[in-house]
C-alpha cells in the first residue's frame, strides 16, 4: 500500500513545467497528424482542379465523345451513364441495405444473425473488382453481354453491406427504453420500429446512404466487367453503358494528350459530384428544428 502511495505522490510531484512541456509536445504531434491528413485531401483537390478545370466547358459537359483523331467532344454519355447506374443500384441497394440493418438490430439473434453480420462485414471488405467478377459470372455471362443492369447490380452489391451495417449501428444507438415506451403504449413492435426507432435515426441513416452513393459513384473496377463502356449515348439498361470512372480510366491511359486532358476534366466533375453529395448530406442532416410533422 505504502509503495502505491509513493507512486501516486511521485506522479503528482512530476514537475508542473515538465508536464506542461509534454502536453505541448503531444498536442503538436496530434495537430501535425491532423494537418497531414487534411493536406492530402487539399492537395488531391487542388491538383484535380488545376489539371481538370481548364478543360471543363459546355462542350465537354454536353456533347458525346468524338472519334479518335477529331478534337473536341465530351463525356455527356458518361455523366448520364453514371447517374443512371447509380440510380438503379440505389433503388435496389438502399432498401435492401436498410432492411438488412433493421433485421440485424431489431430482430437478429443467435447464429443466423451472427452469420449475416459476419457476411456483411466480409462483403464490405471484398475488393470491388471481385464484386465485378462475381456479377460478371452471375449476370453478364447468362445474359450474353455487358449491360448497365449488371453494372447497377455490382454497385448495389457494394452498397448493401455499407448501408446495412451503418443502419444497424445507428439503430442500436436508439436506447431500448424508447422501444419499451412504445410497446407499453400498446403499439405493435413493427410500428414502434418504423415510427419511433427508424424515424429517430433518419438523419444518420440518410448520411450513411449518401456516403454509400458517393462511394459507388466513383467505383471503376466493378463496372469494367459489367457495364463495360460505350462511346455512344445509351439509355437502354440491357446494353453496355458508359460511366464516368471507366471513361476517365480509358481516357487516362490513352496515348492522346487531348484524351488525357478530358480525363482530368472528368475527374474534376466526379470529385465535385462526390463533394457536393457529402456537403449536401451534412447540410441535410444538420440538426433541424425538432418538431412536428402535420
Amino acid at each position: 500500500m505504502s509503495s502505491l502511495r509513493g507512486q501516486i505522490r511521485d506522479f503528482t510531484h512530476l514537475r508542473y513545467k515538465r508536464r506542461k512541456l509534454l502536453s505541448l509536445f503531444i498536442s503538436f504531434l496530434l495537430s501535425l497528424s491532423a494537418l497531414a491528413a487534411a493536406s492530402c485531401l487539399i492537395s488531391v483537390f487542388g491538383y484535380v482542379i488545376w489539371k481538370g478545370l481548364p478543360h471543363v466547358n459546355l462542350d465537354f459537359l454536353l456533347s458525346l465523345p468524338k472519334p479518335v483523331g477529331e478534337t473536341g467532344g465530351g463525356m455527356f454519355n458518361a455523366f448520364l451513364g453514371t447517374l443512371l447506374m447509380v440510380f438503379l443500384g440505389s433503388v435496389v441497394g438502399i432498401p435492401w441495405g436498410i432492411l438488412t440493418g433493421v433485421y440485424l438490430s431489431e430482430y437478429g439473434r443467435g447464429k443466423f444473425a451472427f452469420l449475416v453480420r459476419f457476411s456483411a462485414d466480409m462483403l464490405a471488405s471484398v475488393p470491388s473488382i471481385v464484386v465485378g467478377l462475381f456479377i460478371y459470372v452471375l449476370i453478364v455471362k447468362p445474359m450474353r453481354g455487358f449491360s448497365a443492369l449488371a453494372g447497377a447490380a455490382s454497385l448495389a452489391l457494394i452498397m448493401i453491406p455499407i448501408i446495412a451495417r451503418n443502419t444497424e449501428e445507428l439503430l442500436k444507438l436508439v436506447p431500448n427504453h424508447l422501444r419499451e415506451a412504445g410497446l407499453a403504449l400498446g403499439i405493435p413492435r413493427w410500428k414502434v420500429i418504423l415510427r419511433i426507432v427508424l424515424r429517430g435515426s433518419l438523419g444518420g441513416i440518410t448520411t450513411g446512404v449518401m456516403l454509400a452513393i458517393a462511394r459507388v459513384a466513383g467505383e471503376t473496377a466493378p463496372l469494367l466487367f459489367t457495364a463495360l463502356n460505350n462511346r455512344f449515348l445509351n439509355l437502354n439498361p440491357t446494353q453496355p453503358m458508359a460511366s464516368l470512372p471507366v471513361q476517365i480510366y480509358t481516357y487516362a491511359i490513352a496515348p492522346f494528350d487531348e484524351w488525357n486532358q478530358q480525363a482530368w476534366a472528368g475527374a474534376f466533375v466526379l470529385v465535385i459530384f462526390v463533394f457536393v453529395l457529402n456537403l449536401g448530406t451534412r447540410w441535410l442532416v444538420k440538426p433541424t428544428a425538432l418538431g412536428t410533422r402535420d
Binding site: L178, A181, G182, R199, G200, L290, T292
Partner: peptide
C-alpha cells in the same frame, strides 16, 4: 423519463 425524441 423517456419522451420520444424529435416529437413535440
Amino acid at each position: 423519463p423517456n419522451p420520444f425524441p424529435a416529437l413535440s
